[in-house]
Each structure stands twice: as structure tokens, then as C-alpha cells.
Amino acid sequence: MIKLIEVHKIFGSNQVLRGVNLHIHRGESMVVIGQSGCGKSVLLKHVIGLLRPDKGQVFIDGQDLLSCSEKKLYEIRKKFGMLFQGAALFDSMTVGGNVGFGLREHTLFSQEEIKKRVQEKLKILGLSGIEGLKPNEISGGMKKRVGLARAIAMEPEILLYDEPTTGLDPIMADVINDLIVRLKGTFQVTSLTITHDMKSAYKIADRIAMLYDGRIIEIGTPDEIQKTKNLIVQQFITGSARGPITEREEMNGIKNEIVG
């Protein structure tokens, strides 16, 4: 369904992705874990064509995102729903306007029909009756859920989650995890989640991949990841301050001092 082949991306002198290979099957929930700033968000933006790789290819359903026309790219994007880290709700519109945005833009449904569908989606996420509020009038957890409602409004085949639990209290984080699992069950979507919240990763993933140093260094089921022999992955999933990741960072710091 989603296939990334040798994706490279450089920002200025910073090589963010150095050859990412990732294959996500239809109906699968893939979670990419990694440290903050390791390029997870960049990876996600490549999948939906917000960023173009400097080298490599991205295929969605066999369609190459790089070689297709702009019009085709927007066509492909209709298969996607994306939940942003900060929800990215349009603050000029009401909650209802946000959730119904895709329907108003891409379908010929009547106002009534759109309203019905918006209410339906909000109800799935436990948010009935807030259509008339503006995004700045609701809490962070509600914003995330409204963002999720907007992402699923067009009933997409693929859902992308950008750190879905970051910035939420533990209970709300688990509510979101539950919703993600439930959406997978109800709509049979393929999903790609990036997170550094291991609890969330174990709960929602069919497979977990770890992004480190611009490459996928390990990929496997949550069980396999937990039993990994890779010391880097071990350090990350146990969340310890000592290990190969931090040692390498220290070495880089010393190297920079000598060179600089």
C-alpha cells in the first residue's frame, strides 16, 4: 500500500533521511518510533507528498508520488487522512466547519447531508454537540479528537498520525490510543503513526519500526521489538539515559569541539 524506497532528504547541511526503506501493507498499523528531531515528521510528510525526496521513491498503491502530476497528487491525497501534532484545526472555522471541510470541498452533498455526517463522526469520537464552537474554545484533548474527526470525515483508506498522544494527559492519551485501535477495526484503514510514546506504540502497532540516524534500523512486531538484541533500540524502548545513543551524541559533541 505504502512503499518508501531509499528515500533521502537533506535540509541545508543536515542530512535528515539517509535511505529509508519502508513497506506498509494494506490494513496494517505501522508505528515509527525514534528520538525527537530524528526526522520522523519529515518521513511522514514524504508519504503524503508535502515534501519531495531528494533521492528515492515513494509509492502509494503503486503510484509514484514523485513522477505524477500535481493534479494526480491531489487526487491521491483524497485517500489520506492526517492527524497533526497540534491538530492544525482551521481557526477561522467552527468545529463543524473543520470536520465538514473535506466534504464541502470534494463532494456534492447537501448542507443537511454534510451536517449529518459531521455529527456522526463527532459522535464516534465522543464529541456530540460541539459543532458550533471555535477551535480556541475547546481543550487540547478535544482539539486532537476534532482533528481526528476531520481526518476520517472523508472515510480515507490511509490514516497518518503525527505524535497523536504528545501533549495530552495519560488518560486522554489512552483515549486517543483506543480511538485509533477502534478506527482501524471499523474502517479497516492502513495507518502510519510516528511517536516516541512507547506505551502508545505497543498498543496501536501491528509492526514497529525504529528510525535512527536517517535509516530504519529495526522493524518487527511489538513482541519482537521488546525482545530485540539491538542495543540502540533497547536503549530507546526502555528510555534510559545511558546507552549507545547518548554515547554517540557525546562523541559527536567532542568531535565538534575539536574540529570547531
Binding site: 510528510k45 503524503i48 507528498g49 508535502l50 500535481e70 491531489y74 487526487e75 491525497r77 483524497k78 489520506f80 487522512g81 492526517m82 497533526f84 501534532q85 497540534g86 492544525a88 484545526l89 482551521f90 481557526d91 471541510f101 473535506g102 470541498e105 470534494h106 476531520r150 472523508m154 497518518l160
Partner: peptide, 14 residues
């Protein structure tokens, strides 16, 4: 900066 422009793109609106 709040990713609303990216959100438009992901909703398939130029």
C-alpha cells in the same frame, strides 16, 4: 506555523 496550510494540502485542497 501551526500547520494549517499543510492540513489544507492533506485534505486535498490546493
Amino acid at each position: 506555523v501551526t500547520e494549517q496550510i499543510d492540513a489544507l494540502s492533506t485534505l486535498a485542497v490546493n
